[in-house]
Amino acid sequence: MTRLRIPPTAIFGIIVLALFIGFALIGPWIVPYDPETTVGRTWSGPSAEFWLGTDNIGRDILSRVISGARTTIGLALVTTLLSFAIGVSLGIFAAVAGPRVDAFLSRVIDMFLSVPVLIMALIVLTALGSSIPTLILTIALLDSTRVYLVARAVAVDVATRDFVDVARLRGESLPWIMAHEILPNALPPLISEFGLRFCFNFLYVASLSFLGLGVQPPQADWGGMVRENGQAISFGILAPIWPALAIAIVTVAVNLIVDWLLSRNVRPSGASAEL
């Protein structure tokens, strides 16, 4: 049995991610102040009382960063899970359902790939209006087209193996083959892909909130907090830096873990479809 060796960068990533997931899970019980009530002056600097200072209407920034972890990380996680559910099932379906279905699905997906996710999300959110379910559904659908590429590439490889032919000859149904023969064998490369897609979705959610289209106030979410406190930067106040730093730290942590996973199993094609 080979010993599992984890590089120090990945260990750092895992610890940081665990810390923020901890915030997301037990946030409401450890915040020093209520994140949605005014407790101090506007934009007071860091002090013993308010460790990271207060925001544009005097709420405690530390409490809002901690409680925002649940919203921002949770949204990105739900979006990525949904995106994978759609993208992976379509990708595997395209690989086993025959060349016609494959060609049709791939052309439709190509169409979506030709517009950047953020631009398309802006267009769709204009038409549908911004709410959390719309946000999740929009980004998940757009992102699933990128997942599809990778899932299909992996599944096409698996689908040519003998055991798939055997299953077909046994008379197993298409859904059964997808779930029992293809999916388990396609899973390892898809795990690092999941980390990568999570990073992208996390940044999309944060960017859309920053642009005013994500989570609506007064609920704390990191992108929205940067937006609310943006003007403070011209006075040299750090208020918008803290939530932005939280976003940056989580993305770096996940990227460090993904880099380690990638170096363990080489990822198949689809790397160029990151937008």
Binding site: S207, F210, A244, V252
Partner: peptide
């Protein structure tokens, strides 16, 4: 890695 991970506004 840092430049890619950081959101543009950060």
């Amino acid at each position: 890695l840092a430049a890619i991970s950081f959101p543009e506004f950060f």
